[in-house]
Design a binder for these strands. Structure first.
Lengths: 353, 353
DNA sequence: CAAGCCCTGTTGAACGATCCAACGACCCGC
DNA sequence: GCGGGTCGTTGGATCGTTCAACAGGGCTTG
């Protein structure tokens, strides 16, 4: 029918079809209130007929705004974070779309060398802001971006004293607190913690939650560190189990560590959920496997993604059906949900209420 | 030092600094061969001094090329595909970057309704082409994109008779063939197959590989179907195991089905890898868990990602260090690698060579 | 010696949208 | 009847880059 397969209609085409000027068509699209209703409907009919879509590139050039958010996909870290990262990418993409934004993916080396990529994208006007994740303790990105006045928000706290930029995070301390309360309610009094090495931010936070839980319930802390892998978790948990006074519950800093702990437990002829309670963190797909049934803390990634996008879009003045909250808080903390499975609560034995 | 925090230098600034015209600077960047060496180095010095980066948006407007590839993130299907999808996203992002492209994420409903999103991005000149994944049998995208002359390539075959567009895929039939050969070599002669329902393309391909393997080794096929979930796999595998003539090896269409099969096996007091061999497909992180140790087929996702990007960039005339192969094949098939673990090859018993 | 070509570099226009200043029409009040 | 304010609309300028056409110098060629 139309010859639209070759070139798209332009603003001038629509204006000609509707018998008005370009600016009037632009107003119908951007500030409909400024156009008389009769004119507006006529223009809209022309837009509909020609199936006109404003050229994003031309608009970007004039307004100096790309309506794109940059997100750096890291060079595939451990297998653990993947399911979380996957859902997060989907969440920010969907959330950005509601505000007329899209997500632009790029790669960059970790640390300060990677900043060049961020700078390049900005110099090229390729993005309006950034969404950060996988933040580490000495992360140079927050400081650099704030210093350059670039809008951004992060999934993960800065973990430094100075409060730089907006962030959203999951309250690991509260989550581990839930796990401690859960196993304590099940009657466990000797509760161990399988943690990460000092200085990882996330790990320290979760350890703090464990320690607070111990204080709250008046039990003695029993902490052992691993580097995060399954094998390391198995070794570390084995060390705890072979003590003369072994714990009857093991709260783990991650699902990966918990898998190692499960292994150490079964190797010693103990039944998880029966003889000893075990909990993990992240609620990865492997936690729900039959024969594993690991109690774990599920992160509200979709909520986190929405919140992160809201925060970065705040200073950018986004548009869309859900009105952007002008005074968005610079920080937001979500609490994870404890998903109870038989590793801490056997099916055949209801445990104590 | 510089006042570059406010606005980036422009082509005219560089031209003025080097004492040449805008076009000459443009030529230095895009077609260096057309500029005299002496002038070129002078311009490059100016570019270096001012830290100039060409404005991507202005370039896009003029050349009608966004140097962006669209990729649709699906609304989070089953948990299975996630690890694969995650690596795939990273692979195409990195591969596109080598050619000066970036990946733009968007969401769209499945099937024909989602085509509007593709059309919109094209009308807006937001992307130059698309990378497809999660292709299904009746997928309308291939036909629509080829009909509109849009460059694209897909991870996954079209599965229809008519050969529309470029694709890259993993040879599921060959992979399952490897698995059958592996268990046959271990001495198994009664080999069952846990498959998906008819008509899924991927599932049919893997089933065909199983049937070819049976013919090759002269063993009788024994097929049962499941809907893909763990529970369904457990039930289906149980049906096979409870037969009067149960198989001694179970080749599964996916890791998820294999997890179900593992469950059914252990429930009946059998030891996987010892009394019965089990293999999966995808080599998901959960396959490597201690206590599971599932033999599985690992997909070369990074290679697939590189190939997909090469194919979509072919008609777009990409630039970059690795010269784009002009006559790129429209199709490419990669063979998965069998990762042997104890579910088919116990540690304590070396099995037959 | 003149015509023609390649090589280098310059100029004006164009891509398609939005911003800006100005203008005509209209209504109101004096 | 006329000045002033508001609303809707208009044409021109602009964002930063690349395309098309062309000017001038040095060289070869008839």
């Amino acid at each position: 029918m139309t010859r639209a397969t070759r070139t798209s209609p332009t603003l001038a085409n629509v204006a000609a079809a509707a018998g008005v000027s370009r600016q009037t068509v632009s107003n119908v699209i951007n500030t409909p209130g400024r156009v008389a209703p009769e004119t507006r409907s006529r223009v809209q009919a022309a837009i509909e007929t020609l199936n006109y879509r404003p050229n994003r590139v031309a608009r970007s050039l004039r307004t100096r705004t790309s309506r794109l958010l940059g997100y750096c996909v890291q060079p595939a870290p451990v297998g653990m974070l993947n399911p979380v990262l996957d859902r997060f990418v989907h969440a920010i993409t969907e959330s950005a779309a509601e505000h007329g934004f899209h997500v632009l993916l790029f790669t960059a080396p970790a640390g300060a060398p990677g900043l060049d990529r961020y700078a390049e994208l900005l110099a090229q006007q390729a993005v309006d802001g950034f969404v950060l994740s996988d933040t580490v303790v000495g992360d140079p990105r927050h400081g650099w971006l704030t210093a350059h006045g670039v809008p951004f928000s992060a999934f993960g706290r800065t973990w430094t004293g100075e409060d730089q930029g907006a962030w959203v995070d999951v309250d690991g301390a509260a989550g581990i607190g839930q796990a401690v309360a859960h196993v304590h309610a099940a009657g466990h009094r000797r509760i161990g913690f399988l943690g990460w090495p000092d200085g990882s931010g996330v790990g320290d936070d979760r350890l703090a939650g464990y320690q607070a839980g111990c204080r709250r319930f008046g039990v003695a802390p029993l902490v052992v560190r691993t580097d995060g892998g399954i094998e390391a978790g198995r070794t570390a948990a084995g060390g705890l189990l072979d003590r003369p006074d072994p714990p009857s519950a093991l709260v783990c800093v991650s699902d990966l560590a918990a898998h190692g702990a499960l292994r150490a437990v079964t190797e010693r002829g103990l039944r998880p959920g029966h003889d000893i309670a075990i909990t993990g963190f992240d609620d990865t797909p492997s936690a729900a496997l039959p024969g594993i049934e690991l109690t774990s803390l599920s992160q509200p990634i979709e909520q986190v993604g929405r919140a992160v996008v809201r925060m970065v879009l705040g200073p950018l003045g986004a548009a869309g059906p859900p009105t952007p909250p002008a005074g968005a808080a610079p920080h937001q903390l979500f609490e994870p949900t404890l998903v109870i499975r038989s590793s801490s609560h056997p099916k055949d034995d209801g445990g104590s209420t």
